[in-house]
């Protein structure tokens, strides 16, 4: 499998999530998977400005010049994308959220009814499956994990795919590997 990890940990000194991602990456590589991890805090990722250029001026391409094209290329070639973040104030980091909303060029403006709801049309024929890796930390509880995972299941729906699992860094790496194998 081609697996992409978007590491949304904003704090290089908060090591738990980094260690988890490193260990997971090593295990996956040992199993023969191709793994590309992007550390978002080291990249230039700007906020979406809501200009709609990606839908009505340069279809499929964002008007901003930063490091997102690296992410786009890698995400669209992946079988599975893992979003990794510590829970901060009850949700994923602003850093990861900022990158997520820049995914809008990857879908199409046209509206469709999907599962009885309004959504957008696919731009590509195939999208990667999604998984969440959350680090709970001292300030978070199970309700925060549930709220965040539920929102990411909705994000997956709008990204024309499925959230296959949501795991926490407190779970053994083996459980993450099982979840990934089943995805």
């Amino acid at each position: 499998m081609n697996i992409v990890i978007l590491n949304g940990n904003p704090d290089p000194n908060a090591r738990e999530l980094e260690r988890y991602i490193d260990a997971l990456t090593a295990e996956l590589a040992a199993k023969g998977h191709e793994v590309n991890a992007h550390t978002l805090r080291d990249m230039n990722i700007r906020s979406c400005t809501g200009c709609w250029s990606c839908w009505v001026k340069t279809p499929g391409m964002c008007a901003q010049h930063d490091d997102m094209p690296v992410v786009y290329t890698s995400v669209m070639a992946a079988d599975l994308v893992l979003f990794a973040s510590p829970i901060i104030m009850g949700f994923v980091s602003a850093l990861l959220k900022r990158a997520n909303e820049r995914f809008i060029p990857l879908i199409h403006p046209y509206l469709v009814i999907d599962r009885g709801e309004c959504h957008h049309l696919k731009r590509y024929t195939r999208y990667p499956e999604l998984g969440l890796i959350l680090h709970k930390g001292a300030d978070a509880d199970d309700e925060d994990i549930k709220i965040t995972s539920d929102i990411y299941a909705r994000i997956a729906l709008n990204f024309k795919t499925t959230l296959r699992f949501s795991i926490q860094t407190s779970q053994p790496i083996q459980e993450a590997l099982h979840a990934i194998a089943a995805a």
């Binding site: 906020s47 979406c48 104030m89 949700f91 994923v92 980091s93 602003a94 850093l95 959220k97 900022r98 997520n100 909303e101 995914f103 809008i104 929102i151 909705r154 994000i155 709008n158």
Partner: peptide, 10 residues
């Protein structure tokens, strides 16, 4: 924004 608050709000 993507089913939640815009990144700047977060």
């Amino acid at each position: 924004y993507a089913d939640s608050m815009p990144g700047i709000v977060k």
